[in-house]
Write a protein that binds this DNA or RNA. Structure first.
Lengths: 193, 193
DNA sequence: GCGTAAGGTTACGCGTGAGTAAGTTTCGAA
DNA sequence: TTCGAAACTTACTCACGCGTAACCTTACGC
């Protein structure tokens, strides 16, 4: 029943989705949907919570803290892309719908900030381990870039069903990790003008 | 009048925005809005077109093709972040609202694909100039990552008014360009497992 | 067999907001 | 001074879709 809701919300968007369609796709009548999940907002929130928990637990379990930093990062990314590949509709609800709808945007934004902070912290640990100190704001912007790049590739992956999530994760590692490694060596790029 | 519409759309979202509020903020009555811009969808589209054109012309003008690749990239990025800094509401409409609304998503997605292809092509030129051949799909994923990272930082910038757009652009260059440089030297990251 | 409660459905009330018809003011030309 | 059209407003219609009241039906204890 939540599956039906997630599908309709992802295809139509929160507002354009109507409860009758969700009910029909669930194979029950509308008052049943209300009986089980309350109002439309509550139903949407239930979808949101389920999908975000599925995603987060996968990532957290994958990125075991005892592994080396690059391995941690890679496993986290792979888990993320696997979630997107397996739950395209869920991803669409989390990323496209919830982020722009006022009652829900805050919750999602908070979750995203938490992820960014976790990644920034891991980067910090990795860099300190190599004896380098990096400003907090630079760490944050690196983490933000990484998350944004992941989201972008995730969206691409969601519309390319034949693609392998692991391959996508590897591509991103290549594009990002090596840049981080350079920074780690003290190299920086500066504008000429 | 479009300014008022952009503001309301960005704050409330397309559906929650109502024409009465837009009319009131414009300082005219509702039928006037309809007289000048047709239906709500047409009004939104007008906002979309204006904001996207502002953004695109800025970026295209900045990234003059005769400059060296890194300088081109940096100027394009700086122009993009300057747009976001100066037109937060416009950015919000383009990025948060339009992408998730069915009648408009296609147009925006097409524009974004075009940007990704342009960047991928520029990267290709830069790499070939250094004598390296890279698979088309790798170029695309690098460009997608770059665009996603830019969007992510743009969103962060939009909620940090005191921040300097140029600084944000420089940070992104540091995080991304150096990674590309490594790839350029033939180095790649591979999963251990 | 018969009351009753759990688990449904059908059919409606009602607010909201897009879009408009009809009326009003402003202002320039004759 | 009057006519008329352009520019604008007030006050409405009407569809849509959330949420619910009222009505069925199946199954189980007594």
């Amino acid at each position: 029943m939540l599956d039906a809701a997630v599908r309709v919300f992802s295809r139509r968007g929160f507002h354009a989705a109507n409860m009758d369609e969700i009910a029909e796709l669930s194979g029950v009548s509308k008052p049943m949907v209300y009986a089980y999940h309350g109002t439309k907002e509550e139903l949407f929130l239930a979808c949101l919570r389920r999908e975000s928990e599925r995603m987060m637990t996968g990532i957290i379990d994958a990125a075991d803290g005892s592994l080396p930093p690059d391995e941690q990062l890679w496993r986290g990314l792979r888990s993320f892309f696997e979630f997107v590949g397996a739950h395209r509709d869920g991803w669409s609800v989390l990323y496209r719908q919830a982020r722009s709808l006022e009652p829900f945007a805050g919750e999602l934004a908070g979750m995203r900030r938490a992820i960014v902070q976790v990644i920034a912290h891991r980067l910090d640990v990795a860099l300190q381990h190599e004896g380098r100190q990096v400003r907090a704001e630079d760490l944050t912007s690196m983490a933000l870039s990484l998350v944004g790049a992941s989201e972008s590739l995730a969206d691409w992956l969601a519309s390319h069903p034949q693609e392998d999530p692991g391959r996508t994760a590897t591509r991103l590692m290549n594009a990002v990790w090596l840049g981080a490694a350079r920074l780690l060596e003290g190299e920086t790029w500066r504008p000429a003008s």
